[in-house]
Amino acid sequence: MTNTPENMCGRPGPGVEPTTADRAWLAVACQLATECPPSRTEFSAGVVVLADDGTELARAYSRQHEPHQHAAEGALAQIAPGDPRLPTATVYSSAGPCAERGPGLRPCAELIREAGIRRVITACRELHTDGASGTDGASGTDGTERLEAVGVTVIELSEYADAAKAPNQHLL
């Protein structure tokens, strides 16, 4: 096996304290965001899902397969529902999971919750076109708050926020 950043990252951390491996995998997710097809109206994000033993379960970036597909949506679609590794898996997402989407589209926070994933590492909270990150104007909450409300550990590593926002500057 070739030593690439991805296979040298290691296992995700087990709890609320981020590890060196958590930081390395979040950097991979931020890099994935730069691969997104351009959009004048939608954010670019990257996601990696890792089992607790360090096995990569999936990775995706926004609009990878569908014009309005979010990164977490694309990654989770690659994993069989009920996979026994999901409850101990970690999602690494360059941007915080969304709390709201258009009609007929499911928010990423809901998809993560339904998958049974209990740990999320992100570079920043949900992005908005006003340049802010955080609370969604319509619901008053963001994806991070929704996940935390159901017991999911969400860790924000703000030192990666600039990398997460870089492919989205035209929207911020």
Rank of each mutant, 00 (worst) to 15 (best):
A75D: 09
E66I: 08
E66W: 12
G54E: 06
G82W: 02
A60F: 04
T88L: 06
L50A: 14
E35F: 10
A77M: 12
V49G: 00
R40W: 07
V47H: 02
S39C: 00
L86D: 03
E66C: 08
A72L: 07
A45H: 04
A95H: 13
G96H: 13
Y61V: 11
R63K: 10
R59C: 09
S44T: 09
P38A: 10
Y61C: 14
T88R: 15
G54L: 05
A72S: 14
E66A: 13
H70S: 04
P87R: 03
R40T: 07
C98G: 08
S93E: 11
A33Q: 11
F43I: 06
S62M: 12
C36E: 04
R59E: 05
A33W: 10
D83N: 13
L50H: 01
H68C: 14
R63V: 12
G82I: 03
T34P: 00
A72D: 07
Q78A: 11
G82S: 11
P97L: 02
E35S: 14
H70D: 11
A89D: 00
V49H: 00
E73K: 08
P84A: 06
V49K: 01
R59P: 00
H70Q: 15
R85H: 01
G96V: 05
G46H: 07
R63I: 06
Q78Y: 08
A95P: 02
Y61N: 15
R40K: 12
V48N: 02
D53P: 11
C36H: 02
A51G: 03
E73A: 15
E73Y: 05
T90A: 15
A58D: 08
P84S: 11
E56K: 12
L50F: 00
L76G: 05
E56D: 00
E73T: 14
L76F: 03
A60S: 15
R40E: 15
L76R: 09
A51S: 08
P87E: 00
P67C: 11
A33K: 03
A71P: 01
Q78I: 09
G74R: 09
S94L: 14
P67V: 05
A60G: 13
Q78V: 10
A72F: 02
T90Y: 05
P87S: 07
A51M: 01
P67R: 14
G96S: 08
A58T: 04
Q78P: 01
L76W: 04
S93K: 03
A89F: 04
L57P: 05
A77E: 15
F43T: 07
V49P: 03
D83C: 05
P38F: 14
A58F: 09
A58I: 07
R63W: 05
G46Y: 04
G96R: 04
A80I: 12
V48K: 11
A58P: 09
G54P: 04
S44M: 09
A80N: 04
P38Y: 12
P81A: 10
V49M: 02
C36I: 06
D83T: 03
P97V: 06
S93I: 15
C36T: 12
A33G: 14
A60H: 15
R40N: 13
D53F: 07
A45S: 15
L86A: 03
L57M: 11
A89T: 12
Y92T: 01
L76V: 02
A45L: 01
C36S: 15
A89S: 12
A77Q: 14
Y92L: 08
